[in-house]
Nucleic acid binder design. Sequence first.
DNA 1: TGATCCCGCCAACGT
DNA 2: ACGTTGGCGGGATCA
Length: 840
Amino acid sequence: RSVLKTPLKQAATSHSVLTEIQPDCQPLTTPPKPKEILPADPWTPTSNLKMLISAASPEIRSREQRRELSNNTSEVLQAKHCLQEHLSGDEYEKSQPSRKEKSLGLLCHKFLARYPDYPSTAENNYICLDEVAEELNVERRRIYDIVNVLESLHMVSRLAKNRYAWHGRHNLSKTLQALKKVGEENKYTQQIQMIKKREYEHEFDFEGERNEETARSFGSNEHSEMSFVELPGMEFRAASVNSRKDKSLRVMSQKFVMLFLVSTPQIVSLEVAAKILIGEDQLEDLDKSKFKTKIRRLYDIANVLSSLELIKKVHVTEERGRKPAFKWTGPEVLPNIQDTKLETTSTTPPISESITSKEQCSKNLFPSRGKQNFTRHPSLIKLVKSIENDRRKIQSAPTSPVKISASTDQNLSAFPNKMAQVTAIAKHQLEGQSKKAKEMKMKLSRSALECNLSSPEVVPKPEPPRTAAPSQQAALTQPLGVCPPSHSSVSPVILPHTHSGVSYAIYLHPSQAHTVTTYSPSFMLQPLPPCANVTGIKSINSKVLNKIATEEGDNQIATDDPTKSLTAKERPTIKSETSSQRCLKRSQALQENNLIKRYRSDEESLDTSLTFFPSGYLIPLTQCTHGNKAGFSDKEKAGICSLQHTTYSSPIAGVIPVTASELKAVNIPAFHITPLNIMLSPTSIAAAPVLSNSCLNSSNTSSAQNPSSSVLNFTLQHVGLIPAGVQVPANPVLQHMPVSSQPENVSHSSENMNLQEEKKPKTRIYFLLSFPLNESNFLSFLQPCVPKEPQEPRTVTENFFRTPGGPNTVSSLSANSDGTDRISQGTLYIPQRKLEVSED
DNA sequence: TGATCCCGCCAACGT
DNA sequence: ACGTTGGCGGGATCA
């Protein structure tokens, strides 16, 4: 036993060195290992020891242990050491109590080992911070570091006070897509170049213009927005209550990730990252301490991301010297825009193009801010180029191929030695699960579409074998970016995600979030699939309406089983009807009534509903779609489609008879949006531009989109974003624009979108704006963004919301079984997955 | 030594 | 008041 568990720990304290030096002996110097109880160490979840230990306060106990143990430790260490050697030989790894053992990276591995990469919806993967802290034997503070980063990736979401829900990598691809998009919007690429340029200049000392320009462009606009944008968000739910300022870590983490996603080489040095992150507020003059602090934080984030295998450390050799940097080793994120299905696995999307389009978009969006132009002095450009070239010389180590699932072995190899063992262990365990899931996904995706992603595995077809379940899961999981096929029904459909499909809501302005919340509730979404399986997503919506609140509470629970979720839902609100069918009907009816117009959807129509979250970060909407499509009846689809088109033009209002609450629920669903939703906080107008940018990409046609203010108001109110009395004007606006569902429609808009055209239908996008806009602004925002690939609509999602006005809902929510307070805040959120199903 | 980054104080916020 | 979150930076370790 000792072997297993401890190996890690003790092993060489710091590393091999120690071991070598004092292999047997006691570690005089540092009491290395003080560690706590040995047994516990093994990250094994089970470790009872931990429990025991936990009894004492963590710190105290840890310290005491250290002291006490130190003596023993040496012995232990030796033993372990031996063992280790046997085991792996060299790698004794780090286990000791040494600093490394305590590293965030290792801790994160342990943490991750406790949960599957692709948890099934059914399980209640909820995380109790206290428990985790105890089990892992660390102070809670450390767990926050991990969780915060995971939150930024939507791998976890906060449910309540000490609770978080584990989503694993299901939403990862979407999140990454959203982040990429935002990063592009923010022009991080340019910012990076500027920074580099500056550095370069400094060295050589150029003239002034550069500085000024850069500074300006840099400083002024975008960042600020960006920052806000980034607020960390969680996936679906907003769970959060995020009150605090969600500042740093979460946001920082997202930004950091964005940098990788927009960088061509996908390598980002800490220095540059720190500057950009800081820069947002203040241009360059960073003060040193600030810079230093930022770097520290980046290390924290990087450790977690590294544990996730999204990045790995490398060194960039520039003119100056080597600089620590990180290379993205995560999945490639397809640009939305792009065309669809490529088969290439590799990444090679036309970055330049995308950027360009983006830029344009941004310009369009923010016309006023002209400054943005990137600086483009010729001379500068040259510099930049040269720099970049240098940059490319990075030494990165091996990169691991990536992602997807690589086989276990590969993954292992990739890991650093130290961690490797540990990780490996954990991973192995986990991998089984994740791997399977991945495979399934892959298969599915492939079969469905041929995505590009990268899946190593090639199996083209989905196998039916496990299928039922698997398929579902796959759907749930969201495959990495794949594309989507649109398609029809069933099978492939699910695959949710595709990048293109990504919809996300951006909430700008963190602080605002509160505010936002206020007025807006959230609304959300629904998903449906789960319940019925595929069936009626929409129906769900209706249900949702009814009980949204309840659901939320359920959601955790619900998550597990769609079925259950339903029931749960029922109880609260609905109760009876429960059957999903009914829901569906209702929902359908509502939808139809309400709204919606349809658009053409064809099969593809996605149905989807979206949700908006008030939360502050980027939220990818997940969707659940899986079932939906299939589930939906044609009519629904039709109805939906129709709605959209008209929607703005004519407010739904007339149509809707339903109660507000219903509307809320319904509306969204009705809308069916697949596309993006963006919420801006009112305050941050500045932010707006950002948003717009995103939209930009898509481009668009401006067309018609402008909704009249009245419409907006109406919509918003119904949706619950704003209180009934409130008028939009200054407030948020909601709109949605349909893009064409089909390519054609889109096409007109811009070339950017071209690609899309070919492919499938496009999705529609809706935006929610919370800040005051002018009409003119508004228009710009409206522009539809079409995802590149249209994917299917996936959608579903979650739902719920809270409204300011709707205390009821809220309260009910709060009632959740969990007891969590999540809702208390008003936000709601719902279980995304609940419906999902998966499982099967 | 510079690169990393653990540790934990203590403030902000919630309850 | 107390508990939860988590910003922040000193200073210990690592390389």
